[in-house]
Write a protein that binds this DNA or RNA. Structure first.
Lengths: 168, 168
DNA sequence: GAAGATTGAGAGTTCAATCTTC
DNA sequence: GAAGATTGAACTCTCAATCTTC
């Protein structure tokens, strides 16, 4: 049963092919990296579907959430990109959409004329809380790994991120 | 040390904020899902950078690899999309690019006039092997988790994928 | 009429170039 | 001259519509 089940899994097949090609010491890494890609792809699809009724994408949701949790409700565009590790142009785009929807307001920084502060509005706060509740109920609280395992995987991924220099 | 290190990690910060908001039973799931997103993002960036000298993206590399490992070196466009779980339009795009580069050839199926078979060329086989060697050396063999842990995480992700109905 | 593949529109991302302010 | 932000070009992905063949 186990053997046939594995055989039908595209990633297991790829792993077998890697071994057969003599790439033994890369096969597990390849399978792991490919698994990350697949899980991410499915999760992002689900999340974006769930957020669609709110007029949000996951990228915009992350921006809104970051502002929601910030001390003053506002952050320079550049800082947003740093925290979320995305290109400044992507932040500009996301903030523009959020601004069009009345969820965020743009203001020039009082202290630095080059900088632009994006601040969450009351509507934005309301919406992001409702959207978060939806994701909590339908995705985050339902990760199909027993509690301990969940923490295990999280800690391993955290090691991995650390190796990227992802945080200090 | 541990506490300060965690505090500087954006995902740990988000997790703390989730707890503070009273979303205790979703906080771990949120942190795990967000970690997947971040790791995927960094990995994909690295992989695409490494493949750029070969004129490939990861999506095109996956198509080429799938054909390389297929019995006859050719597959219908639809089957490629199934294995890789991507939209038919994406496959059409990838195959067109690969064809322009002389790495793949398109031919109508002899048995079904609706179907198009994409077949890897000799140039394609040569290139994909060299590209795979590069990814093996610089990414797959260097996953910074001890051997046993790597397998652990892989197995957990496999459970997760199974819950998606990702394979039979 | 349904399946396989392609096309064009719409949205998002990255990169290089530009503009303003330090 | 360098940093912060924006703009336009190029690319990829998804979705709906279309075309051909079953």
């Amino acid at each position: 049963v186990e053997a046939t089940a594995r055989a039908l899994d595209p990633i297991e097949l790829a792993r077998d092919n890697w071994m057969r090609a003599g790439w033994d010491d890369s096969a597990d890494g390849m399978a792991l990296v490919t698994s990350i890609m697949r899980v991410q792809q499915v999760l992002l699809g689900r999340i974006d579907d769930l957020l669609k009724p709110f007029g949000l994408t996951f990228a915009r949701f992350e921006v809104l959430m970051l502002l929601q949790f910030s001390r003053t409700g506002g952050l320079p565009v550049g800082k947003i990109g740093e925290h979320l590790q995305v290109h400044p142009a992507s932040v500009t785009n996301a903030v523009s959409r959020l601004e069009d929807a009345g969820l965020v307001r743009r203001r020039p920084s009082p202290s630095d004329g080059r900088s632009v502060i994006a601040s969450i509005t009351a509507d934005g706060r309301d919406l992001v809380v409702r959207a978060a509740a939806r994701l909590n109920d339908d995705v985050f609280s339902g990760v199909p790994l027993a509690g301990g395992r969940q923490r295990d995987v999280y800690d391993r991924l955290r090691e991995w991120r650390a190796s990227f220099g992802d945080f200090a």
